[in-house]
């Protein structure tokens, strides 16, 4: 399974994601520059964290107009796997690949810590290696992670089981205290209708192997690799 990691000016988690894919998951991976339309026949795209184009106007506001995102939108529409992490989530939400928006944290502060998230849906290419209700510890580091959408969109997300992760206590209870940024319904990650696009604020690449203190995040990459393995077996 070939992974492409997008690189914008200001991306700063691109190398971490690349490392995890290449050296932990042992998959072919390549960087894809923001000015290129060519996704180089990748099977999955990672939109990494950071501050694309500086995020000066609004997170993801300029990145959504980049040539590479035009190709990513087409790729996603044809069923390709797209994982947006943190700033990547903000970018794909701005691009319209996912509904809603990531607003300034309710506490107005940058939050950087380990977060516990409960896996709410395992029928996605990003969580098939997880158990339903499993609690993963994955670091967060963001200023604008406060997920918002209107009531109709929220109802639709819930009805179609597209809330993939929720912030929770270490024992898996979804409480206001466990919500680090004011996100609606403790939402930490959602997927699109086709379930092939996932956006999440926590950084799985920062908990991608044991030496980092926690390897829970690796399950996200493992799940994506499983999709490739299963596709090969079905051939």
């Amino acid at each position: 399974m070939k992974f492409g990691v997008l690189v914008f000016p200001g991306s700063n988690c691109d190398h971490d994601a690349y490392w995890t894919l290449k050296n932990v998951a042992h998959q072919p991976a390549t960087f894809l520059w923001h000015e290129s339309h060519d996704l180089e026949n990748c099977d999955a795209i990672i939109v990494p964290g950071g501050f694309a184009y500086g995020d000066y106007l609004r997170t993801g506001a300029i990145a959504k107009f980049s040539p590479v995102m035009e190709s990513v939108k087409k790729f996603a529409a044809s069923g390709g796997l797209v994982l947006g992490i943190c700033n990547g989530f903000q970018i794909i939400a701005e691009s319209g690949l996912l509904p809603g928006a990531l607003m300034r944290n309710a506490g107005l502060k940058y939050v950087c810590k380990n977060a516990d998230v409960r896996v709410e849906a395992t029928d996605t290419p990003f969580t098939n290696a997880c158990k339903e209700g499993e609690v993963l510890t994955i670091p967060i580091g963001h200023m604008d992670g406060n997920y918002y959408c209107d009531d109709a969109t929220l109802a639709e997300l819930e009805r179609t089981n597209r809330v993939v992760f929720r912030y929770c206590t270490p024992d898996g209870r979804v409480t206001p205290e466990a919500n680090p940024n004011g996100s609606l319904e403790n939402i930490a990650g959602i997927c699109n209708e086709g379930r092939n696009v996932l956006g999440m604020m926590p950084h799985p690449e920062r908990s991608g192997e044991a030496i980092l203190g926690c390897a829970d995040g690796f399950k996200i990459f493992q799940s994506m690799v499983n999709v490739g393995v299963n596709a090969l077996a079905a051939r």
Binding site: A61, F65, P99, A101, Y148, C149, D150
Partner: peptide, 8 residues
């Protein structure tokens, strides 16, 4: 198209 995000 640029200065605002119509969602919010």
């Amino acid at each position: 198209e640029v200065l605002t995000n119509p969602v919010i």
